[in-house]
């Protein structure tokens, strides 16, 4: 019965398999709330304590082929795999397990449904996932991809904190697109990345308290940042300097410290320059090279023995200078 139902579904979808191109809807910009042609999950974790579920959906009515890359934030190494999403199909996988191709997965199991392709497992991983719409390995922007990442505690204890954020979606540009492996984020081929990234946060030094939990609480805000200049064909890391400009609740503007990194970075916001320190602040990052960003806050209370986490996208603005994502050439 199950096989028959899947078969019918597959067959229906198969009827559309030959049609792979849909009319593009030009939509310049880097978004978190509308589909795009390049999806970036800046923060992806798979460790003994945390795991990440990646969700991707095809919002189009045609089959959508996708080439995805794991970028290891430690080594800047990349591996890639292929997905094929039927019309409107959502799919998901846990980074620690990947996903195999087996339509006989039982209902309710993590692999149930039409498997989009073979997805390698990643253990002890911190980095990003980048997915690009393609047709037969050639990048073709259709703006049909949306995605979310859910980062979960997997220790099995009482605190099963979960953070979720929307993938950064880069839409097609105003031009005619590209046919090579270098995706130029210049507004013409694809939308540019943003110039500024703004994050509101509770400084973790003084007083650093969760306004709900009280005197024994603390809040740490973590920023994860990925350059928009990515060369998957060479594992060539991009070096970036992040300039931080901070404001406290007295409208006093300070700056720094700056953060330099290569390839990928995840760090806690340093409120040291805030003067005077306040219970709430905002920081605006500008980068020497275009970047995308996501934020995760960790709230805990040692007195109550509780903790929680939440991720969110950052507020962005401006169109950054040209950057590019170079895919590895296929045989």
């Amino acid at each position: 019965m199950r096989a028959k139902r899947i078969a019918l579904t597959t067959a229906l979808l198969g009827a559309f398999a030959v049609c792979t191109l849909a009319a593009s809807v030009a939509s310049a910009g880097v978004d978190h709330d509308r589909p795009g042609s390049i999806l970036i999950f800046p923060k992806v974790v798979s460790s003994a304590t945390r795991d990440t579920t990646i969700r991707i959906s095809n919002t189009g009515n045609m089959t959508n082929q996708v080439r995805c890359f794991y970028l290891d934030g430690d080594t800047c190494g990349t591996i890639d795999f292929d997905l094929s999403l039927t019309k409107q199909q959502p799919t998901q996988w846990d980074v620690s397990n990947g996903r195999t191709v087996n339509l006989l997965d039982s209902f309710g199991s993590s692999g149930a449904g039409l498997d989009p392709g073979l997805i390698p497992a990643q253990g002890d991983f911190e980095g990003s996932v980048v997915c690009v719409e393609v047709v037969d390995d050639v990048p073709v922007a259709q703006n049909k991809l949306k995605g979310e990442a859910i980062i979960r505690d997997v220790t099995g204890g009482d605190d099963r904190n979960t953070s979720a954020y929307n993938a950064v979606a880069i839409t097609s540009g105003t031009g005619s697109g590209t046919s090579d492996n270098e995706l130029v984020l210049d507004g013409d081929e694809y939308a540019q990345c943003d110039t500024v990234h703004r994050v509101d946060f509770i400084p973790d030094d003084s007083p650093g308290l969760d306004p709900v939990l009280g005197e024994t609480s603390s809040v740490v805000t973590n920023v994860t940042v990925l350059p928009c200049d990515l060369d998957f064909s060479r594992r060539a890391p991009t070096s970036v300097v992040l300039n931080a400009t901070l404001w406290n609740e007295f409208e006093v503007q300070t700056s720094g410290p700056d953060t330099s990194f290569s390839c990928w970075a995840s760090f806690s916001i340093d409120p040291a320059s805030l003067n005077p320190a306040t219970t709430f602040a905002t920081v605006e990052y500008s980068a020497s090279s275009p970047v995308v960003m996501v934020v995760e806050s960790f709230h805990s209370d040692t007195g109550l023995g509780v903790s929680g986490s939440a991720a969110r996208n950052v507020h962005t603005g401006g169109a950054a200078s040209t950057s590019s994502i170079t895919l590895s050439a296929t045989p």
Partner: peptide, 23 residues
């Protein structure tokens, strides 16, 4: 098995697809 190109039908050969092909 495969799927007929012209209908949502499971197949093993073109004969089962009534003019379509079994992919």
């Amino acid at each position: 098995p495969g799927v007929c190109s012209n209908s949502p039908r499971i197949c093993f050969s073109d004969v089962q697809c009534g003019g379509g092909t079994c992919q």
